[in-house]
Design a protein around this nucleic acid. Structure first.
Length: 261
DNA sequence: AAATTCCTCAACCGCATCCCC
DNA sequence: CGGGGATGCGGTTGAGGAATT
């Protein structure tokens, strides 16, 4: 009966980012379908999660990989293969997507170099087959214990020695969060916001996300959302005025984050 | 200066796994 | 225990900017 909204695709706008950040601040970084619905974003929950994890998360680092990080990626990839998310867990502030992209770029360069080298030396290279994943074999030691994801799923708590020492806070989204928290305080009241219990959601690293203990329980059926929770267009305009000349922006030229309005 | 190629990275897709009922 | 929805993961694509011709 409910006309299924067509999910928007493509690049996110600043306003969408802002909205998403706001609602994640409100509800925590779980229940993505719920957040997608309640925020009025015409995005799938999946898309919201991806955007959050890869771009908006407060702990994300931006900018080039440091040499230390690079060698860590090499090292871990030689151990674990393409287990990007696992590798990412060892690199604070880096996402699996970022590492994946870095690796691809890196491998492409490496292969180009090898080709060049092979051409100049005319020595036949053994490691030519260019299976995307095979490249590691020529690069690293042979200890690519192709970790089977199914076999090793319990590494959750395991904290290894790998630590990127300098977690330089080149930027943080805390400012945005704080800004949101302050500037929207009144608006939150309008929404009859959920009880914020004052504790940090452990999944939400920096900013203490308001959590909704009861509402977020799985039994809460948000298919029939109380209109109170769903943003209609007017509310949306009030809370998130259209991006204009006095809009907010998230990143400066260096990729550092700030929020202005 | 214009055209073309290359590179980067955000976003999508499909499948696997988890979790709850 | 099985089914179904939600979430996570890895592979892939494509837009847009940078570099090169």
């Amino acid at each position: 009966m409910v006309e299924q909204e067509i999910s928007r695709k493509g690049p996110w706008t600043e306003q969408e980012d802002y909205k998403l950040a706001y609602f994640v601040g409100l509800f925590g970084d779980r229940r993505w379908d719920f957040i997608a619905k309640v925020s009025g974003l015409s995005r799938s929950g999946k898309s919201c999660r991806l955007r959050w994890v890869n771009y908006l998360h407060p702990d994300l680092k931006r900018g080039k990989m440091t040499p230390l990080e690079e060698s860590l990626v090499m090292d871990l990839h030689s151990k674990w293969g393409n287990r990007w998310s696992r590798i990412a867990r060892k690199l604070p502030g880096r996402t699996d997507n970022e590492i994946k992209n870095y690796w691809r770029t890196h491998m492409r360069k490496k292969r180009a170099q090898e080709k060049k080298h092979a051409a100049t030396t005319t020595t036949p290279s053994i490691s030519s087959p260019d299976q995307s994943s095979s490249c590691q074999s020529s690069l690293f030691s042979n200890n690519n214990h192709a970790v089977d994801s199914r076999a090793s799923n319990k590494e959750t708590g395991e904290e290894e020695n790998y630590q990127v020492e300098e977690i330089e806070q080149s930027y943080s989204m805390d400012d945005i969060w704080r800004d949101i928290a302050m500037s929207e305080e009144d608006d939150i009241n309008i929404l009859q916001q959920p009880v914020y219990d004052g504790t940090c959601d452990e999944n939400c690293n920096n900013f203490c996300s308001p959590v909704m203990p009861s509402a977020l329980s799985s039994s809460w059926d948000y298919s029939n959302l109380d209109p109170l929770w769903v943003m209609d267009e007017d509310e949306s305009k009030i809370l998130f005025p259209p991006i204009g000349d006095q809009c907010f922006s998230f990143y400066d030229q260096q990729g550092n984050t700030f929020l202005t309005r």
